[in-house]
């Protein structure tokens, strides 16, 4: 995520707690079933790294609802970013693991925060290099506004208008030991 070092930011507000995250995921899962008339040919591809955890949670919910296991893959978009060379430090490249073909599948991309839309653009380019999906949909936990590309989410956990100085941080048990979504702002000196 773009922005200054974490240590100079302080927490402004919590916008989702653990229960809120669970409810959002449940609703997103139901919407995916509704929009796609079931989960036939649906696959979930999470953007590393928290998008992957969210995708797994959605898959669990989908299995509860429809009784079917939906395949989950992990996509690393580092090599497709449009800002390599602009960041002060280089992002670490992690492994893309999508152990199934995506040709003719309905791919639901899953990410934690939708902001400028550039990560989604990179993810779509990466997917196109891996095959030809029938369609691509986007599920995000938080949409914070400020799109810089004509991209929109199909499934949104929470809409949260923010300013450019703020940062939305999603913390998940799998990686951070806790489930919450907070807004951070520059620390006033």
């Amino acid at each position: 995520m773009p922005g200054g070092p974490m240590s100079q930011r302080r927490e402004k507000a919590q916008i989702l707690d653990a229960a809120g995250i669970t409810r959002a995921i449940t609703r997103i899962a139901h919407e995916i079933v509704e929009r796609n008339n079931g989960v036939q040919d649906v696959v979930l591809v999470g953007l590393r790294s928290r998008g992957v955890d969210l995708a797994h949670r959605i898959a669990v919910k989908l299995e509860e609802i429809e009784g079917t296991k939906v395949p989950v893959g992990a996509l690393d978009i580092t090599l497709y970013r449009d800002d390599l060379g602009k960041a002060e430090t280089q992002p670490v490249v992690r492994r893309t693991e999508i152990p199934f073909a995506i040709n003719d599948k309905k791919v639901v991309l899953v990410d934690d925060v939708l902001y400028t839309g550039r990560s989604c653009r990179a993810a779509m380019d990466a997917l196109m290099d891996l095959g030809r999906p029938r369609l691509i949909q986007l599920a995000v936990l938080v949409d914070r506004g400020h799109r810089e590309l004509p991209i929109r989410a199909d499934y949104v956990g929470k809409n949260m208008p923010t300013s450019h100085q703020e940062q939305v941080q999603v913390l998940l048990t799998e990686e951070d030991g806790v489930d919450r979504v907070v807004i951070l702002e520059e620390k006033a000196d």
Partner: peptide, 23 residues
Amino acid sequence: GLILDTAISMKEIASRDIKKVPT
């Protein structure tokens, strides 16, 4: 260690049909 770890991700590209990334 960083070079070896990065190479793990790079190796995956060799297994694709389209061996191309825009980096």
